[in-house]
């Protein structure tokens, strides 16, 4: 079966009832969608299907043939973070990162749907309420989405420099490509 993932056509061998999550992670080595609960209850596996957020763990492969799948690897241009990604970084919207790709994709779809009009806190809570985060307490995530929806951008180099001021290093993990 052929699948369009992040703009590239992929040939996949998994069976038609394999979950999209399984295909992305195990067959295509795209590991940003996380296998959290695998029961639809946490949102860690959310990807965009034709621009709309969808739980990849609940999605049979056969149902997305011909659809455009987007994961965070496919957001924005290579080497450039999108406004949502920048805001999550700058506002400390990510800690362990397990929920982050699902959160960022849901936020991206929400902001895209509003055509730059900004989103309310209530809309964020409603749309992202099914995404669980065990680290941040949600406040920082909501602030990041609000900032991105207002079109705020951040100088990440400047933030990094500020983080090392006074000899204290901001912890930036180099995962060496592991996830």
């Amino acid at each position: 079966m052929r699948l369009m993932v992040n703009g590239a056509e992929q040939e996949v061998d998994s069976g038609p009832l394999a979950s999209l999550l399984h295909v992305l992670r195990e067959e295509l080595d795209i590991t940003s969608p996380k296998a959290g609960c695998q029961q639809g209850g946490c949102g860690a596996c959310t990807v965009l299907v034709d621009g709309k957020p969808q739980r990849s763990c609940l999605t049979p492969l056969a149902s997305v043939e011909g659809a455009m799948i987007t994961t965070v690897e496919g957001l924005g241009d290579a080497g450039e973070l999108t406004a949502v990604q920048q805001a999550f970084y700058a506002k400390y919207g990510a800690q362990c990162g397990y929920c982050t790709s699902g959160m960022m994709l849901a936020a991206t779809a929400l902001i895209d749907a509003t055509n730059g009009d900004g989103v309310t806190r209530q809309e964020i809570e409603e749309v992202m309420g099914g995404h669980l985060c065990r680290c941040t307490g949600y406040v920082k995530i909501i602030e990041a989405v609000e900032a991105a929806s207002r079109g705020e951008t951040f100088d990440l180099e400047e933030l990094r420099r500020a983080g090392t001021a006074g000899g204290e290093e901001t912890m930036i993990l180099d995962t060496g490509g592991q996830s």
Binding site: Q38, R55, C57, L58
Partner: peptide, 11 residues
């Protein structure tokens, strides 16, 4: 929609 069945199939 598979929202009940898929976890059964995956498991």
């Amino acid at each position: 929609g598979g929202t009940i069945l898929m976890p059964e199939i995956v498991a």
